[in-house]
Every structure is written in C-alpha cells, then in structure tokens.
C-alpha cells in the first residue's frame, strides 16, 4: 500500500504543477482567441494517455490468453475503465475547444472523430464484460480487447482520408514552450494513470479475495 500512497501524492503534485504551468505559459499565436488555448495542456495529454490505456488493454489481453492468469484480466479491465474516462474527457475538452475556436460544439476533425469511435468501442468492451458470465468473461473480453485496438489505426486512416481535413493548428502554432507544457502534461497524466490503474487493479483483486473468503466460509460452515 506504501507504493500506492507515494504514487497518489506524486500524481497530486504532478497535476498541480501542470495546472500552474498551464497558467504561466504564454503563446502569442493562440492568444488571439483568448485563454482557451490553455486547455491544450490537458486535452492533448488526456488523449495520448487514453490511447496508451487502450494499448495496455490489448497487451494485457494477449498475456491473459497466453497465460490464463487473472492478474492480466484485472489489468485489462482497469485500463479500459481509465481509458474510457480519459477519452471522454478528451472529447469534452475538444468540444469546448471547438466551441471557443469555431463557434460549434463539434467539428468532424479526424482525430476527434477517431477518438469518438474508439471511445464507443471501449464502452462496448465494458458492456461486454458486464454481460458475460464469470466463466468466460476474461477470455471473451480479451479477444474483443485485441480486435478493438487493431481497428483503431485503420479507423483513423479511413476517417482521415474521407474527411479531407483542414489543418487545425496553423503553421508555427506549436512553439517550444507549448511543447514543454505538453511534455509536462503527458508525464503528469501518465503518473495519474499508473496510480489509478494500481488502485483499480487492487480493488478487483480485493473483490476476488472477498468472494473467495465468502465461498470458503460457506463451505466450512456446512461441513
């Protein structure tokens, strides 16, 4: 539990730093639309870590199928939950951005659209987990966890080609200060992700343990 505590404090520090930094960084290029560009330091890292989380779902799924160890299934479930939440936050921040920048809540931007599709896939993944019996849950959701992630790059490719996108960040938009802010953001959210992942995985394991104890107690009572 010590490790979790340390990680918790660390993520608190990291996210606070990110918030402070997001207020300090100035960008003359983005400034013309007001302070909305500060959302960038949350929006972009959230998106990255959401995809990292989905990638971890696939890796855990492959390991589960190879080793049949419940640990990997718990990791996959935990990572999918975090990914869905981070992707949802990406969509929300993206939508607010679009409203401020172009006056509409949604633009069919390839990256945002792909994130929407991906988000739906992993909501489906969690729905699948919920409607499977304990016997087959881990194995079947592992198969879907693999199929799901493979479809993401192909979806992105076809969405990009079909939407004929206009570049969203104009030339010279990303200055080195902005890039530094993004790096801090990615680090901060990675720490937060690791922290929640561990907590959720521990929760699942405790849940398993409680059920085991219940079962054994019932058995010894009757004997």
């Amino acid at each position: 539990m010590e490790k979790e505590k340390a990680l918790g404090i660390l993520s608190l520090i990291a996210i606070s730093t990110l918030i402070v930094i997001s207020f300090l960084i100035k960008s003359p290029f983005f400034q013309q639309n007001g302070d909305i560009y500060r959302m960038l330091f949350f929006h972009v890292p959230l998106a990255w870590i959401a995809y990292l989380a989905f990638f971890i779902v696939m890796i855990s799924s492959i390991f589960y199928l190879k080793k049949e160890d419940r640990k990997y299934d718990n990791y996959a479930a935990a990572s999918a939950e975090i990914g869905v939440i981070f992707a949802a936050l990406t969509l929300i921040t993206g939508s607010i951005w679009a409203r401020a920048e172009w006056g509409v809540w949604w633009r069919w931007d390839p990256r945002l659209t792909t994130t929407l599709v991906t988000w739906i896939i992993y909501v489906a993944y969690l729905t699948l987990r919920g409607s499977l019996s304990e016997e087959r849950k881990a194995r079947l959701s592992a198969v879907y966890g693999i199929i799901a992630f493979i479809s993401v790059p192909i979806s992105y490719l076809s969405i990009t080609i079909s939407l004929h996108p206009q570049p969203i960040t104009g030339g010279g938009g990303i200055s080195s200060t902005i890039a530094n802010g993004l790096i801090v953001g990615v680090i901060a959210y990675t720490i937060l992700y690791t922290y929640i992942l561990r907590i959720r995985k521990n929760t699942f394991e405790s849940h398993d343990e409680v059920q085991m104890i219940e079962k054994n107690r019932r058995r010894t009572n009757t004997e």
């Binding site: 896939i121 729905t127 409607s131 199929i147 192909i154």
Partner: peptide, 23 residues
C-alpha cells in the same frame, strides 16, 4: 460467436460489431 455467450445473446452484436467495422 462472442455475443451468443452473453446474457442477451445476439442483442449485443451490433454494439460490438459496428464500431469495429467503421473503416
């Protein structure tokens, strides 16, 4: 084959299949 194992049987198939076949 995945969805027949769920409680709702074929009901879940569209939810699983459609987002994956977007391309």
């Amino acid at each position: 084959a995945v969805s027949v194992n769920t409680k709702t049987r074929e009901m879940l198939l569209p939810v699983l299949l459609f987002p994956v076949i977007v391309p």
